[in-house]
Design a protein around this nucleic acid. Sequence first.
DNA 1: ATAATTATGACAATCCTTGTCACTATTATC
DNA 2: GATAATAGTGACAAGGATTGTCATAATTAT
Lengths: 313, 313
Amino acid sequence: MSKSKRLMELMMAVNRKRKFTVKELAQEFGVSSRTILRDLQELSELGVPLYSEVGPHGGYQVLRERILPPIAFTEDEAVSIFFAVHALRHYASLPFESESSAALSKFYYYMSGDTRDRIDQMKNRVDFVTPERQISAPYLSILLDAAIQQKVLLIDYESRDKRTIHDIQPIGIYSRNGLWYCPAYSFHHQEVRTFRCDRMHSVAPSDMEALDLSHIHLENREVITRTDQEHIALYAELTRKGVKMYEAEPWPVLNMQTREDGSGWLEGKILTSDIPYFASFFIGLGHEVTIKEPSELLACIQSTLSELMDKYG
Amino acid sequence: MSKSKRLMELMMAVNRKRKFTVKELAQEFGVSSRTILRDLQELSELGVPLYSEVGPHGGYQVLRERILPPIAFTEDEAVSIFFAVHALRHYASLPFESESSAALSKFYYYMSGDTRDRIDQMKNRVDFVTPERQISAPYLSILLDAAIQQKVLLIDYESRDKRTIHDIQPIGIYSRNGLWYCPAYSFHHQEVRTFRCDRMHSVAPSDMEALDLSHIHLENREVITRTDQEHIALYAELTRKGVKMYEAEPWPVLNMQTREDGSGWLEGKILTSDIPYFASFFIGLGHEVTIKEPSELLACIQSTLSELMDKYG
DNA sequence: ATAATTATGACAATCCTTGTCACTATTATC
DNA sequence: GATAATAGTGACAAGGATTGTCATAATTAT
């Protein structure tokens, strides 16, 4: 193997391992230790941040930065990466250390001139918008950490009507439409609930013993948690226009089906406690929706309407 | 300069240039042409996709892929890039050739083992959700292209109530809440309007002369276009609960201010044609909002309500 | 035709690379 | 304090790789 090839592979190897010894690499590459030492010095000169310690359990390490070996990206790939990261700028809070803008400028800086030109042209023409919020969610990384390490947290939470302090065991966090949510097992409610991260006034480690929820994560939490709660079937007809309106603002739990003529219907099971929200929602759809069931929803809509008539009458 | 170092720099050089000749590089690196030829062959063997043509105006080219030189990313940077690109998977349509999943796996593949472990742990614990849509928008790249190159397009568009064919000159495209929008100058309406990309039935190049709108882009379009349209002032009081409800679903044109006690108010200028939408929206907020002006909006809410009373009464 | 370009082969001079050996220095562990 | 594991340096000779030069071919736009 030629030296240059070995250097490239060496670069990948030291990236893969966090720690390694000269002897180890010498055997792996089938060259002498002396050669590896010389190679490592050369890598060092090329910018790979190597650090070494002598003595037993000593060895080499790659510091802070990890050098990615020459990755081949197509221009399109580079462009999509750029815009994906660029879209993160809309977020007031992120669960990472948020050095993504640093990453972005590095990426941008190393791109070939004409790819950069293309990006510059596109910069003001494409965007992934997320509503800009004043609200910040400072505890994202703590929550994420707890979810990964299966730890219990004590939170001071302000819900719609009251403020309580209780223990939760986070399952994960996700952002939707600019807000961060945290599905978590609530020891107080004895079930999985979703909390708004910006409504947490404080988050601290708790002494409580964690449950084994490692098999529950963001993708499957609904399947698992939606068993022992009060659900009720919903069925509603949509006009052609109603279909379009619903498409613009769908609810994850309601499944929409369309017919050939453009009309359609909604089916799904909803939480009884969510009925008031669905009531507002369907009122917004006006004549374009006709609710068949549940009757509880119809009743709720009627009472909401008559209250509103009093207000606006 | 050692050969390995030269190869690395050569790799960067051929990335920077799109096209180059052997002689050119030979002079730049101060070696003979023969050496450069040998080096290029070696680069080729290392995976750089080089292509050459003989004859005058011939020369070397780097194909499709651009090799990024060894970029140093910190672990945090790599992680944020990963999740930013990962979030794109929610989009049914993208304006790029959508090789982002390929880019992602490359990126993932080359990362060090423990960064990969960290990502694996986080994968099911963090997400940037965008509502999944069945609707696809196949014309995104054409629209984007037209916006960049300032071209006029003839579109077959289905709006809320009718289907028309007319000329537009796109300003850009953006996605919001899972749907793609295209602000564009409409020759038919003689003003800038925003179109839903999924409602375009066809998009084709038009023969019309393009206007000079190069100074208008996504960031400034509102400032410029909001001059000669029918606007009307809106002012509404929000209760404490109303403030929280509005935060979850804000409208870009309405500015919310809060008081110390948690209550607040909304101010802004709205399009008269949008009044029906605001009516539905404020009905959804129920008792938590009190509209002061415009009276047109109040009237619209009243008529909507009485219609609904007929339906649900 | 001509000039510009890539492409390939041969060869000798030279430069670089490699392994070996000898040695030093540091440090964790017994 | 001895020992073993580790990095680090220097010297040297053998062998291998690299380089420039030259010759020559092939292709193609002008």
